[in-house]
Computed example of a mutant assay.
Amino acid sequence: MSHGKNPLIVLLAAPETSASVLYGLYDVLASVGAVYSDMLAGTPGNEVLDIKIASADGKPFHCLGNIPVEPHIATDDEASPDAVVVCDMYTSIYDVPKGRYPREIAWLRKVHDKGALVTSVCSGSLLLAEGGMLDGREATAHWAYRDMFQRHYPQVSFRNESILCLTEEADGIVTAGGVSAWHDLTVYLITKLCGYQHAIETAKVFLISGHSEGQSPYAVMTRPMETSDAQISDCQTWIAENYEVAKPVEQMVARSGLNARTFSRRFKAATGFAPIEYVQALRIEEAKQMLETDEQLVDEVGVLVGYEDPASFRRVFKRGVGLSPAAYRKKFQRISQIAKPMAAKA
């Protein structure tokens, strides 16, 4: 633990880190205690957190976008943080970071063993998974990494709906979802280390409102095509064009020429979804696009994607998205109100 005046938070970064995450975290956390009173009374207060940027070797580098970063410390330095934030370390959803961050992972394990709270933003949780720190635990990251976690880190219970996964807090690990989830993580860290009042005041300064609805409304179904199983690939191609048909799973089974049990097993192995879950997810993705752009009634949208019963459509939609169809439309209409006038001028 830090023995200085203020709690020490270390932001771990690498060339794959987003500048918006690294410098956003730094600016907000470094302002705690100082900026709020300055905005109210014109007199800065005292900073209450010590914020340091760390990298494996401590040398200057450029992060994503060729933005320069000058770390304060290297992971080999004898820093004793109260908390660590593993910033996002971007990687393709097909590119597992095996063996890519050995020094960073060794340091994370060491400081965690010494009692530091270890947190991550977005793909930063991949480092924790690589280090075995998430084995047998629940964790989150950006929803697009769901398949990677299921295939390559099956010991981790991946919570793709969560913005902030706090279920492992008692063991000193907290993970946050997509890149903008650093807002939620920041509020959590300020509350934990500085108190609720500082968190509220900082949120007011930076207009941080959090993501109370979770990641699900933003998630998009990822559908990598299976290439090693020709029968399953053929069914994926077919259902993508025929998702609205009645009894879709039965039709895929018949098309494959397999018995139902074998088809289900091979489909799950190939896609990560049970067949009916895949169909439902596909239908909901189509419904979301209609709700975002079209003016049909909600019940009409349900029929178009294969649900004759409006109640069934609403139930399946809310279970998958976390919002009712009407609430989803309202949420994304706010974005369209900003985007459409700009698109018309282009």
Rank of each mutant, 00 (worst) to 15 (best):
F158A: 06
S120L: 08
V118K: 04
G131M: 05
W143V: 02
E169D: 10
L128S: 00
K114Q: 14
T140N: 11
N160H: 14
N160L: 09
V118P: 09
A141I: 06
Q155K: 15
S180Q: 12
A141P: 12
L126S: 05
D147L: 15
I105N: 07
I105R: 08
D171T: 10
F158K: 01
G172R: 02
E104K: 03
S180Y: 11
L128T: 04
L108P: 03
Y145R: 01
W182I: 11
W143P: 05
D184M: 10
Y145L: 13
A181E: 10
E104I: 07
G177C: 08
V111Q: 02
A181I: 04
E138K: 10
L166K: 09
S123A: 13
D171Y: 09
D147K: 15
D184E: 13
E168L: 08
G172Y: 02
L117I: 06
G172H: 01
H142G: 13
A181V: 11
H183E: 13
E161A: 15
Q155D: 10
Q155M: 08
I173F: 12
G172E: 07
L185W: 09
D113C: 01
Y153T: 05
R137C: 01
G177P: 07
E161N: 13
H183A: 02
A170S: 15
D147T: 13
E161R: 14
M148C: 09
T167Q: 15
E169I: 01
A106V: 02
W182H: 15
P154N: 03
L166Y: 07
S157C: 05
M148Q: 11
T119F: 08
L108A: 03
I105A: 10
L134K: 06
G136Q: 08
R159C: 15
D171A: 02
R137I: 04
F158H: 09
H112W: 04
E161W: 13
T186K: 03
R109G: 07
V118S: 07
E138Y: 08
H142A: 12
K114P: 05
E104Y: 07
C165K: 11
V174K: 01
F158I: 00
A129G: 07
L166H: 04
L117G: 01
D184I: 12
K110C: 10
R151W: 13
G132M: 02
V174G: 02
T175Q: 12
W107D: 03
K110G: 03
L108K: 00
S162N: 13
F158R: 06
S180D: 11
L128G: 04
G136T: 07
A170F: 00
A144H: 10
D171M: 00
G115Y: 14
K114M: 12
T167V: 13
G131V: 02
D147I: 13
D171W: 05
L134R: 04
H152M: 04
G131D: 00
P154M: 09
T186V: 10
W143K: 00
D147V: 06
V121A: 15
R151A: 15
G131K: 05
R103M: 07
D171L: 03
Y153E: 02
G136M: 06
V156Q: 01
I105V: 14
L127V: 06
D184Q: 06
T140A: 04
M148L: 10
H152L: 06
Q150C: 07
D147R: 15
L126T: 08
I163E: 14
T140S: 01
T119M: 11
R103C: 09
C122V: 09
M133D: 00
E104H: 05
S125Y: 07
